[in-house]
Write a protein that binds this DNA or RNA. Structure first.
Length: 578
RNA sequence: UGAGGGUUGGUCUAGAGGCAAGACGACGGGUUCUGGCCCCGUUAACCCAGGUUCGAAUCCUGGACCCUCAGCCA
């Protein structure tokens, strides 16, 4: 078969890449076919085209990974292009954050950084060409009239009385629009297509509108600005994009994308649509994200609870985990809701092999080891990462008084609770077996201290000569040596799986999305923590020294994600069962 | 009720006329100085009805349901 040869050649290319082979998807099938038929001379050029009017979120990451990933896979290039055609909403703060975020994700557009606003002169010329071809006209209807004339989903629209203005008049009018002779809203340039088109996008869509507003890049140069439908396809064409990927809500616009390029007889990329990402327990629409920020439900776009790339970064999510996530969710055309646990899984998978382990007690309970000599202490060796021996070991100080986690002791342990309880013995990680001999309570009956004894023969946490086993190993911190630091515990921003479906999504914000462990006690090795470092707090989760609030001397920890917690699941089931 | 897009286990994704596959989750077990990691196993899906075919998730016909569009937003 003749078709086999080129195909296997591409497979070889893919295998040569040191990045994990991304799964096949329908877009790759299309591109493979285009390469076989020589549609674009075998080239693949994509682009990521954000509008600089908000911060990038994990949904954008899907598009970024797709566009840059495809270009890389096929040996092509991916442009970064700002779709900045609306000076009302766009500014350089957003441009800068977007550049930072795409870079952080790990992608490189080389020198292919573009702005739709760079093309304003050419776009204007294209518009003039369209007028000359009798395919565009200046309409002097008001906004309301245009809406009325458009018709409805079921009824055709009506032609504007200005629709058949002669070419010369349109030319003169458009020129005056551009020169600032008209006020905003008094006229627009429209494509002359078909007011009865079943696809409403084709009912003489607006191409240019008047905006007497300074643009973040072109300043006062223009007072007419192209609409998305006009600017986008032509920007793609100018940049010789081969495959123009966008989300499903633009399917209806593809007809217009094709119409404009055909009318102007210019290079014609193909638009391919895919389903946007929806993630459970959060929101990903720009409108809702802005609301969260502006109404103060979160602390800005970069709040660690936000699904923005800046928020995820601040929280401690890593670019590798996000890329992996974008790989495993795949790309298709059906609406879907990805479970956020998949994102969390990808993050754990990466940090499991890379994050040094350390002991920290978030909710301390004092434990006095009665048979351990007062005032003495010793260093015990702990491994830094059982997944990676090359990360070495460290020494952890032990002494008579230590802290353990409050939740690791229960006076009346239920079934399947393996941790400390009166008269029960457990292991202190890397230290000793201890047995609980007494419980001290305050006036409210709350347990405030445990009295325990230790077995010297279990030093290092090893099984004693008599072969005695324990069912649990607890993390701990020596009181005398403990460091203190604020630890912020982040959880899902919303209590419901699909807050977007709610009447008012704000009513479902998780009140416990941020809690602080104010009296956390940390092992002294954490004195080396600097802003922007990852750790696993053993038995608790992965933590990150907040890059903004930490200083070299005073780290602030963010919980990125908990460890999988089998006991929490058992307890939940027990509680549910009564 | 116009046009367009869509429907495969709980979730996401493969499948292109020939054994419905993988990941996540859930459940059970093994291992373990993290109730983590790892390992093993179980569970569980082609929207419906017809048709074509030796054979249909896949092709055809009809239907149901979901999503998008009536910005001078993108």
């Amino acid at each position: 078969m003749t078709g086999d040869k080129p195909k296997s050649a591409y497979e070889d290319d893919g295998a040569a890449s040191d990045r994990e082979a991304a799964p096949v998807n329908f877009i790759k099938h299309i591109i493979d076919k285009d390469i076989q038929t020589g549609k674009y001379d075998g080239h693949v050029t994509t682009r990521f085209p954000p509008e600089p009017n908000g911060y990038l979120h994990i949904g954008h990451a899907k598009s970024i990974c797709l566009n840059f990933g495809l270009a890389e896979h096929y040996g092509g290039i991916c442009h970064l292009r700002f779709d900045d055609t609306n000076p009302l909403r766009e500014n350089t703060e957003y441009v800068e954050s977007i550049i930072e975020d795409v870079r952080w994700l790990g992608f490189d557009w080389k020198d292919n950084l573009y702005y739709a606003s760079d093309y304003f002169d050419r776009l204007y010329t294209y518009a003039v060409q369209l007028i000359r071809k009798k395919k565009a006209y200046v309409d002097s209807l008001s906004t309301d009239e245009i809406r009325e004339f458009r018709g409805t989903l079921n009824e055709p629209g009506k032609k504007s009385p200005y629709r058949d203005r002669p070419v010369e008049e349109n030319l003169a009018l458009f020129e005056k629009m551009a020169a600032g002779a008209f006020e905003e809203g008094t006229c627009v340039l429209r494509a002359k297509i078909d007011m009865a088109a079943p696809n409403i996008v084709m009912r003489d869509p607006t191409l240019y509108r008047i905006r007497k507003k300074s643009h973040h890049r072109t300043g006062e140069r223009w007072c007419v600005y192209p609409m998305y439908d006009f600017a986008h396809c032509l920007s793609d064409s100018i940049e010789k994009i081969t495959h123009s990927l966008c989300t499903l809500e633009f399917v209806n616009n593809r007809e217009l994308y094709d119409w404009i390029l055909d009318a102007l007889e210019v290079y014609h990329p193909q638009q391919i649509e895919f389903a946007r990402l929806n993630l459970s327990y959060t929101v990903l629409s720009k409108r809702r994200l802005i609301q969260l920020v502006e109404e103060g439900y979160v602390n800005g776009w970069g709040d660690p609870r936000m699904p923005t790339l800046s928020g995820l970064r601040r929280r401690g999510y890593t670019p590798g985990a996000i890329r992996k996530f974008c790989d495993v969710i795949g790309v298709a055309r059906r609406d879907s809701m990805v479970d956020i646990s998949l994102l969390e899984h990808c993050q754990r998978e990466e940090l499991n092999v890379s994050a040094p382990r350390v002991m920290a007690v978030l909710n301390p309970l004092r434990v006095v080891i009665e048979n351990y000599p007062d005032g003495e202490g010793e260093m015990l060796e702990a491994v830094n990462n059982p997944e990676d021996a090359s990360m070495g070991t460290r020494n952890v100080p032990f002494s008579r008084v230590i802290y353990i986690e409050k939740e690791d002791f229960m006076e009346e342990p239920p079934k399947k609770f393996f941790r400390l309880a009166p008269d029960r013995e457990v292991r202190l990680r890397y230290a000793y077996f201890i047995r609980c001999r007494g419980v001290i309570k305050d006036e409210h009956g709350e347990v405030v201290e445990l009295r325990c004894t230790y077995d010297p023969e279990t030093r290092g946490g090893n099984t004693p000569p008599d072969g005695r086993k324990v069912k649990a190993t607890l993390h701990w911190v020596s009181e005398r040596h403990a460091l203190s630091a604020p630890v912020r515990l982040y959880d899902h921003l919303f209590r419901v799986e699909n807050p977007q479906a709610a009447n008012d999504f704000r009513g479902h914000i998780n009140p416990a999305s941020l809690t602080e462990a104010a009296s956390a006690k940390l092992e002294p090795a954490l004195k080396d923590a600097r802003p922007g470092m990852h750790y696993q707090f053993e038995r608790l989760g992965y933590f990150y020294t907040d890059p903004k609030e930490s200083t070299d001397d005073h780290p602030v920890f963010n919980r990125v994600v908990t460890l999988r917690d089998t006991w929490a699941k058992i307890r939940k089931k027990q509680n549910a069962g009564g």
